[in-house]
């Protein structure tokens, strides 16, 4: 029983991080109907960002996250203007492949620069015990930071002028343009925010798992699953769905071999796509 609870808590804490990774993906989808296939490598870049800032400059990993976030924002804007802007209104295949080519470029350069050997951020916050349950400090802090990031995103989207613009463009880009919203800048900003969230999640993951430049791939797939569970384009849904995925990953291994986890995850993913494409949480189909 304790083992189950410990595993569940572990999973839930990780779920927060999945949540913000997926939030990045879902935000970009919601605003511009683009599935960002460079999401995984950006998560990996977030990992390397924290790793180098910490190990080369000796800066605390959580401070390094701020630089990683800023870098993610700028990189996202750059990717938008270079790869996405020209094909934003083209059929889906174009944006899928455009972002995939960015994926190839990052992985290609990343492999050359960082090699394929695994890295590890040599940093720990120890662990503490509640009753008989042990919780890793880095995971708890990651979950708390993820909550702050979510709160910040929420405030930005609902309280700031640019946030309102983003929501307006999400709602209806043409109408927003007619109302004078600078849509190109808003699209670039949204893409930047999406990649920023990916980079932050990568940075957090780096504090507890070893990684390579290819490590982002599996988190990208998880982000797809989480985004669809939460409803594509719904950031709050993504956080909740992240927790659900985390819980699944926590509970399943206590009853089945771990290798069954991805089977269940992806079957769930397909079923949701088929029967509740609006996601688990929205009651009215849009």
């Amino acid at each position: 029983m304790d083992f189950l609870l410990a595993s569940l808590i572990d999973g839930l804490l990780l779920g927060f991080v999945y949540g913000i990774a997926a939030m990045g993906l879902t935000l970009i989808w919601g605003v511009m109907n683009v599935i960002n296939l460079s999401h995984g490598p950006i998560i990996a870049l977030g990992m390397f960002g924290v790793y180098y800032i910490f190990s080369a400059l000796g800066i605390h990993p959580y401070l390094a996250l701020i630089a990683v976030a800023a870098g993610g924002l700028l990189l996202g804007g750059l990717i938008y203007f270079v790869a996405v802007h020209r094909v934003i209104d083209a059929p889906h295949l174009s944006t899928l492949l455009a972002t995939f080519s960015v994926n190839m470029i990052i992985i290609g350069l990343g492999t050359a620069a960082f090699s394929a050997s695994p890295r590890n951020v040599d940093f720990t916050l120890g662990s503490f015990e509640i009753g008989s349950i042990t919780i890793l400090g880095t995971r708890l802090v990651a979950a708390i930071l993820a909550m702050f990031v979510t709160g910040g995103l929420y405030l930005f989207l609902y309280k700031s002028r640019y946030g309102r613009y983003i929501r307006a463009v999400t709602d209806n880009r043409d109408a927003a343009e007619l109302m004078g919203v600078p849509s190109v800048r808003i699209l670039a900003l949204s893409f930047g925010l999406g990649t920023m969230l990916a980079a932050i999640s990568g940075g957090l993951i780096a504090t507890f798992f070893p990684f390579t430049i290819l490590a982002g791939g599996s988190y990208e797939l998880k982000s797809f699953v989480v985004s669809v569970l939460g409803g594509l384009g719904n950031p709050v849904g993504a956080l909740l769905a992240g927790l659900i995925l985390g819980a699944i990953e926590g509970i399943i291994p206590t009853v089945l071999p771990t290798t069954w986890v991805p089977v269940l995850e992806f079957v769930l993913f397909i079923l949701i796509l088929l029967f509740r494409p609006q996601g688990l949480f929205k009651t009215k189909s849009s």
Binding site: S101, M104, I106, G108, A112
Partner: peptide, 11 residues
């Protein structure tokens, strides 16, 4: 950097 070059060409 073959993967990166291929990616750039694809783009």
């Amino acid at each position: 950097i073959q993967l990166a070059v291929a990616g750039a060409l694809l783009l």
